[in-house]
Nucleic acid binder design. Structure first.
Length: 946
RNA sequence: GGGCAGUUAGCUCAGCGGUAGAGCACCUCCCUUACAAGGAGGGGGUCGCAGGUUCGAACCCUGCACUGCCCACCA
């Protein structure tokens, strides 16, 4: 027997262990023809503990996996974590800083050792939390984006792209994060509106210093790197000036005034300073005007400080300090007219690119990086959506997804950090013929900017060296080959060009998203043609938030389609972000984060999960309030107690009979009604899950259990305690537990365990049992008749409550009316007596009783003699109010039915419905009007209201 | 500058063509033998604004207004 009190903690631990012991979540490729249902987890970064967003993400996946497992699919949910590149390295760098260390001080190898040790702890924490959340992950399949098996996929993919000419190295303008010290791809740059200024600076004409061209800029410090000023060719303000030289203020360097179509005449002064090294648009402009412009100086370095080219007194200053200094100096610098060269400062707010990992302003910078051409891959990803092989839920995301892919830019792949897959490219020192390169010991990294690729090699794996002794060998089987360059296993052999054996590996690592993009492939052993890959790929659904739709989802699609010709997952389910209860994004700095563990401790994991699920409408953000967990906890408690009730009914009684053995003719109205309702909620729930509307699915089950099952059926079940009722109680409850199990796995498992003997279930766990099967129980007649009972009960209860009849007091009642509804009351008087606490219920013989209150339901009228108890004044008010409501209703339906347009054009069913409702309202109205008349005729009763 | 959502009861949200719903909060009554983490009843909304389509609009269309998000090299 169950404890009287529902206490979640104990049962959670118990079932977590039991499931693990039974290997319940393990999956192998099925040989019996069962279809796979596969989800790969969006691997959380190993940067710490999981937050509430992870809890939502994983709860939704678990609901789907458990649901499909219950419904007979060979379900496999692959767990794993992501090494998380810059984000993770940043956390470690902070730790080092606290110890007065830097990564450069301790060196690459020791740094990576520390990273590995630390991220191992994080992995443990994360997997522990997922377990605590009840996630039915196949833990034997745990993967890490930086482990050996994944490295294999990464190197294979890199080599393939290189061989196909999609990956190449080059010097280009990239987004540079000064704080993180690395290049970023375009999507790793966030745009923030920031307040700033527009500085107007006068550049004197070199041969006529009394005249000026005024440029407007938001970044005066880059002036030091200007190589030109540009205007629109048709801008009459600058007619005759184009082609002449200007004198760059502060440096007094002559620079040309160019004309270019890209210049917006309406902005600022129409004249733009051109700083190719520090602005992407200027960089392009420079390339268009190469012949007219000199090679541009880079005045801001990788560290965010001014370079020697910025000259004294700016060299060495931070870019922020340099701005102050430049502005100050421009204010002091006077033109030939005696006025400052800085002619105007106006407030200006524009969007500033910031690093998505540290929020520092991005510095556009020219540097040598690895790039991947994305166009051809993107086309395939778009085609997959066009062909509906890949669908996004909600589909409103398909358009932005398509557009992003349509405008895709090359992907900057290399990162100047250490934590990640090192780029599997080696350079031959001999071929480079570079002193610097030659001075580097064999196998060490290539100093940047030393030359072009001499050899590509999908080879030496630095992490394998660290994880275990010795060098792990890459065995791709097929080795790509391009430009006659040998690509070999292990370290490169002799250089095919010069025979040298002195190799330098590329210093950089790959963007963490490169390995993430391969995730659905790599977790199944690709590039090997494994049995797992054949059975589980393509996976069914990817569940994620919209913030990584491009960063991750799109790239997985592109990779999957490129390498397999098949989408990696057929559906993308996009959920919202968990916000605080006022809709604000949770953040440590706002102090509004809620810890999932705290909530699970306080309310139980099931309640926590259920509250997340009931709010997860597709694509909608969730304003999360603790009250919602309270509500879910209360629901869990309701489940608990209703099961206790059913178990109490079973105690000492005989067994139950299977549903299919029940004699339909023997069933009561309530029996037929609840079975009909149950069949309906099963269908409804399944339809909602299929549409990924998990909130609606959870809501449907909630209402069924609480409203239909507990409030009506269980109450009526108390009237008769026979085997039939017992059987139905057990079947319906067990079925409901099964359907709720994906949402609340622990409590349902506990309750199922208590019920299963009675229910004749042999399975030890819900996931081993069959999903509820029910068909043919839909019963419109039962629903109609039960509707009469329910309305009558509600009407009588309202009467009691509004006239202050004590809830415990049994009252007598008479009913008047004819037809099928009266018949329902006659047949089911026991229901009404029980539910409305009636001492007796009889048909009214003779005139309406005096000294009684009136209740109406459908076309029926109930009279409750309450002489002495009743406050007739109150009763008059009550009835008058009801009459007013009915009058309004009658007026409305009357107008509708008199409108020929409505009667002729509306669907017939609609007209019939209005007619039926009108009849009901008419009956009620007439009956109540008559009552009111009698009441008012009763002078002597205290009539004068107030 | 484009695009996408949202605007419904005090709060948080469902509903998306037939006279407005839930949970919480609020008011009244009740510790009735599954459950006070409960039961019964009740108050509360001209569904952002303005037009249009329709017999009928919270729901479809067009504008507008806020709010939020995504994308974008206007210095």
């Amino acid at each position: 027997m169950l404890d009287k009190i529902y206490s979640p903690q104990a049962i959670e631990a118990k079932w977590t262990e039991a499931w693990a012991k039974a290997g319940l979540f393990h999956s192998e490729p099925a040989r019996d023809g069962r279809r796979a249902y596969t989800i790969v987890i969006p691997p959380p970064n190993v940067t710490g503990a999981l937050h509430i967003g992870h809890a939502l993400n994983n709860t939704l996946q678990d609901v789907l996996v458990r649901f499909h497992r219950l419904h007979g699919r060979e379900s496999c949910w692959v767990p794993g974590t992501d090494h998380g590149g810059i984000a993770t390295q940043n956390v470690m760098e902070k730790q080092l800083k606290a110890e007065n260390q830097t990564r450069h001080l301790i060196g690459r190898e020791r740094f990576l050792e520390r990273m590995l040790a630390w991220t191992r702890d994080c992995k443990k924490t994360i997997l522990g939390q997922l377990t605590r959340l009840g996630c039915s992950l196949d833990f034997g399949r745990e993967a890490f984006t930086l482990d050996e098996a994944r490295a294999r996929s990464v190197y294979h993919a890199f080599a393939d792209f290189f061989a196909k000419g999609l990956i190449s190295r080059g010097e280009r303008m990239v987004n540079w994060c000064v704080r993180c010290g690395t290049a970023l791809s375009d999507i790793e740059v966030e745009h923030e509106e920031r307040k700033g200024h527009l500085w107007h600076i006068r550049y004197p004409l070199a041969d006529d210093p009394a005249h000026f061209v005024t440029v407007a800029t938001t970044r005066p410090e880059t002036l030091l790197g200007d190589t030109a000023v540009a205007v629109h060719p048709e801008d009459e303000r600058y007619e005759g000036l184009v082609g002449r030289k200007l004198l760059l203020p502060l440096h007094d360097r002559p620079i040309p005034l160019l004309a270019d179509d890209a210049i917006d005449r309406a902005f600022g002064t129409g004249a733009v300073k051109v700083t190719p090294c520090h602005d992407p648009a200027d960089f392009e402009l420079w390339q268009r005007h190469l012949s007219e412009m000199e090679a541009p100086p880079a005045v801001i370095g990788a560290d965010g400080k001014m370079t020697p080219d910025a000259r004294e007194p700016y060299a060495g200053l931070s870019r922020e300090k340099a701005r102050e200094q430049v502005v100050k100096d421009l204010q002091a610098a006077k033109g030939r007219d005696g006025l400052p060269l800085l002619s105007k400062i106006e407030p200006y707010h524009g969007s500033v690119g910031v690093c998505y990992r540290c929020q520092q302003a991005i510095e556009p910078r020219v540097s040598e990086q690895w790039f991947m051409k994305m166009g051809p891959l993107a086309e395939k990803a778009v085609a997959a959506v066009d062909r509906r092989e890949h669908r996004i839920f909600p589909d409103s995301w398909e358009k932005p997804y398509r557009e992003w892919l349509g405008n895709i830019q090359d992907w900057c792949l290399s990162r100047q950090i250490w934590w990640g897959h090192r780029i599997p490219v080696w350079y031959c020192a001999g071929c480079l013929g570079d002193k610097l390169a030659a001075s580097v010991p064999d196998g060490e990294g290539l100093p940047r900017k030393t030359g072009r690729v001499s050899a590509l090699l999908a080879a030496g794996v630095p992490f394998a060296k660290l994880e275990q002794d010795g060098v792990w060998q890459y065995q791709a089987g097929k080795t790509p080959d391009r430009d006659g360059l040998a690509v070999q296993s292990g370290r490169p052999g002799p250089c095919p060009k010069c025979g040298g054996t002195h190799w330098l590996q590329d210093q950089d690592v790959l963007d963490t998203w490169f390995s993430s993009a391969l995730w659905p492939l790599s977790v199944f052993g690709w590039p090997e043609e494994t049995a797992d890959l054949k059975f589980y790929y393509p996976t069914d659904v990817l569940v994620t938030g919209y913030e990584i739709l491009y960063l991750w989802v799109a790239r997985m699609q592109m990779m999957g389609l490129h390498f397999r010709g098949q989408v990696p997952f057929t559906h993308t389910l996009i959920h919202g972000i968990v916000r605080d209860k006022r809709g604000k994004k949770m953040s440590k700095s706002l102090g509004n984060v809620v810890d999932p563990l705290v909530l699970m401790d306080k309310f139980g994991t099931d309640a926590f999960r259920f509250s997340l699920a009931t709010q997860a409408y597709p694509g909608r953000d969730i304003p999360f309030a603790e009250e919602s967990v309270t509500g879910a906890r209360n629901f869990a408690n309701k489940l608990w107690n209703s099961t206790r009730f059913v178990l109490m009914n079973l105690e000492g009684q005989g067994g139950i009979v299977p549903l299919e053995k029940l004699d339909r003719a023997q069933l009561s109205l309530a029996d037929r009604w609840i079975l009909s309702e149950f069949e309906a909620v099963l269908a409804e729930t399944r339809a909602y899950v299929a549409a990924y509307n998990l909130a609606a699915a959870a809501g449907a089950l909630y209402r069924f259990l609480w409203d239909s099952f507990c409030d009506w059926y269980v109450e009526l079940a108390k009237l008769e305690r026979g085997v039939t009722v017992r059987s139905i109680l057990v079947h319906v409850l067990t079925g409901t537990l099964k359907m709720l199990h994906p949402f609340m796995p622990f409590i349902t498992e506990e309750l199922f365990a208590a019920l299963r003997v009675h229910a004749g279930e042999s399975a030890e766990f819900i996931l081993g049992a069959r999903a509820p099967q029910l068909s043919g129980w839909a019963d419109g007649e039962a629903r109609r008749r039960m509707g009469v009972v329910m309305e009558a009960v509600q009407s009588l209860r309202a009467l009691r409550s509004q006239l202050n009849v004590h809830p415990g007091l049994m009252i007598r009642a008479f009913y008047a009316g004819a037809g099928p509804e009266a018949e329902v009351v006659r047949e089911h008087g026991d229901y009404l007596r029980h539910l409305a606490k009636l001492e007796s219920l009889e048909p009214l013989a003779g005139p309406r009783p005096a000294q009684s209150a009136t209740a109406v339901a459908k076309t029926l009228t109930f009279f409750v003699p309450l002489a002495g108890v009743i406050d007739f004044d109150k009763e008059r008010q009550r009835i008058a109010k009801e009459i007013a409501r009915l009058s309004a209703e009658l007026e409305h339906s009357g107008r509708q039915l008199q409108d020929r347009n409505f009667v002729e054009r509306a669907p017939e069913a609609e007209v019939l419905k209005v007619r039926a409702l009108r009849q009901e309202a008419e009956a009620k109205h007439a009956s109540l009007a008559q009552t009111l008349q009698t009441l008012e005729a009763k002078e002597g009763a205290p009539g004068g209201a107030a």
